[in-house]
Design a protein around this nucleic acid. Structure first.
Length: 466
RNA sequence: GGUGCCAUCGCCAAGUGGUAAGGCCGCAGCCUGCAAAGCUGCUAUCCCCAGUUCAAAUCUGGGUGGCACCUCCA
């Protein structure tokens, strides 16, 4: 298996720190608002990575954190006069629910910042003891970037003089403008946590380093974990700072491989609240089947930027429809999980830095070939058996085709409409039997007016939501 | 301003030195009472210029055009 390491900027063969095992950490959401499509993309990418690693027989420990301490959460809590837990619980639950709808499996571990404070205190103390952090007169604790000779080695950034000067003025107590907060002291009445460094809140970057040390890290390896992932925007400063904290506080570097997924734009524009075109996952899920969203968001390479638009989404749906039609065609046949030439090729495509385009091309070819063979007369026992194995594999590794095919094609259609459609179909079939094609075509138009497609098959007449 | 990424058929999108995958759309045909679905066939020389090479979409240089990060951010 090869993955692109965004720090070394090259595809590297994946070799785990411990044979047969993989430790993966991905930066999860800050639970102060609903998840948007970007959160979905990131979760999907690393869900796929986990599935591919597992298909390679690795025992994967996947941790994705929940950031439940954050200034934005606290701000919202104060505004709405609620306890922060009320807010974080609400959005955490919503996040879980929405992830389930797009087929994202729960990570092995989901550490929360509120449950990792002790680990954060320990990390800060280690950094102070080793001379990599300092307290300011105001009571803040900062990481001393000048004390880390490898700082900026992750993002390959160079310190900019203009930028440096600008920021000195705004934070006089920092030794260096690039220094970042490990602990922010808070003196007013707002929400704070008591620490050995006084009342305040932890710095965002610290949470991840602490959680990794606490939940995942090898103690005797040159790296704490195998793979660290997240959105492309996190490389700097978030991951840079995480890496600095871990390497300075402990005896190991943070991660052996770094993976960053590309951004999601909406109709060519950056998603952001200031632009007002923010697209929440929950809104998309009202319109589209979660699996269609999964398929669409995963349909281009994870490192590319993704331009979300409904036209492309509908095209992606048509592609997924074909998989489901084949599934429908073989509905009821015995399941099996045999290895086939197809499953080997598919895994091989995914092992190449998750080349999803190649994988989808293989799937389309497999579908066409199966349909072609099934179109000819014969029992095709072997082909059916193999195709069932192929479909099962796609389901397991890619999470596509997991639903009942009949239900898939009925997304968003209410029971009353279903009954009406079935009645019309019965009437049309009766008319067809009498060769009253004028009537049957009229009935078909009525059926199509419901926004569905109609198809006559050897197994009967079926409708599909367009 | 600094750093970095990208530019392949109408649209989406693989391919990183050996002569252009796949999907959507379109056209023709098979199937069908007619359709739909399914199947078959057809449709690009890879932003521009120069260079390296027996050979380049793929490497180098220049240009043009997009984009990202540098601030909370998946």
């Amino acid at each position: 298996m090869h993955i692109f390491d965004s720090v070394q900027k090259t595809k590297r063969e994946f070799i785990p720190l411990q044979e047969g095992k993989v430790t993966l950490y991905v930066c999860g959401p800050t639970v102060y608002d609903d998840a948007h499509l970007g959160h979905a993309k990131s979760a999907l990418v690393f869900d796929l990575l986990t599935r591919v690693l597992e298909a390679n027989a690795y025992d994967v420990t996947y941790a994705r954190n929940i950031t439940d301490i954050d200034d934005k959460i606290i701000k919202k809590a104060i505004e709405q006069k609620k306890d922060i837990k009320e807010i974080t619980d609400f959005y955490t639950e919503a996040f879980h629910k929405e992830m389930e709808l797009i087929g994202v499996k729960r990570p092995s571990i989901e550490p929360k910042a509120t449950q990792s404070l002790q680990a954060m205190y320990e990390l800060i103390q280690q950094l102070i003891d080793k001379g990599h952090a300092y307290k300011t007169p105001e009571g803040d604790v900062y990481f001393d970037t000048a004390s880390d000779s490898e700082y900026l080695s992750l993002s390959h950034r160079v310190q900019n003089e203009d930028e440096r000067q600008e920021r000195v003025a705004s934070s006089a107590s920092k030794h260096n403008p690039a220094d970042f907060a490990l602990w922010k002291s808070v003196h007013d009445d707002s929400i704070t946590f008591d620490s050995p460094f006084g009342a305040g809140r932890p710095g965002w970057h610290l949470e991840c380093s602490a959680m990794i040390e606490k939940h995942l890290a090898y103690k005797d390896k040159p790296y704490a974990i195998d793979i660290h992932g997240g959105g492309a925007d996190l490389l700097f400063p978030h991951h840079e700072n995480e890496a600095a904290q871990t390497r300075c506080a402990t005896n190991h570097a943070l991660a052996n491989y770094w993976m960053h997924n590309g951004f999601v734009n909406i109709d060519g524009e950056k998603m952001s609240k200031s632009l007002g075109n923010s697209f929440f996952l929950k809104d998309a899920l009202k319109e589209y089947d979660g699996e269609v969203l999964r398929f669409y968001l995963l349909s281009t390479h994870y490192r590319s930027n993704f331009n979300f638009n409904t036209q492309d989404l509908m095209h992606a749906k048509k592609r997924l429809d074909k998989l489901y039609r084949l599934k429908k065609r073989l509905f009821g046949l015995a399941q099996n999980e045999e290895e086939t030439a197809f499953t080997k090729e598919l895994l091989s495509a995914l092992n190449d830095d998750m080349n999803i385009s190649s994988a989808l091309a293989l799937i389309d070819e497999m579908i066409s070939h199966a349909n072609e063979t099934l179109d000819t007369a014969g029992k095709h026992k072997l082909l059916k058996r193999e195709t069932m194995a192929n479909l099962a594999y796609i389901q397991k590794v890619l999470g596509f085709g997991v639903k009942n095919p009949y239900e898939y094609f009925q997304f968003g259609v209410d029971e009353t409409t279903k009954e009406s459609l079935n009645t019309l179909i019965e009437q049309r079939n009766a008319a067809k039997k009498e060769k009253n094609f004028e009537l049957s075509d009229k009935l078909r138009d009525e059926i199509l007016a419901y926004g569905v497609n109609l198809m006559d098959t050897p197994q009967g007449t079926f409708w599909e939501k367009v």
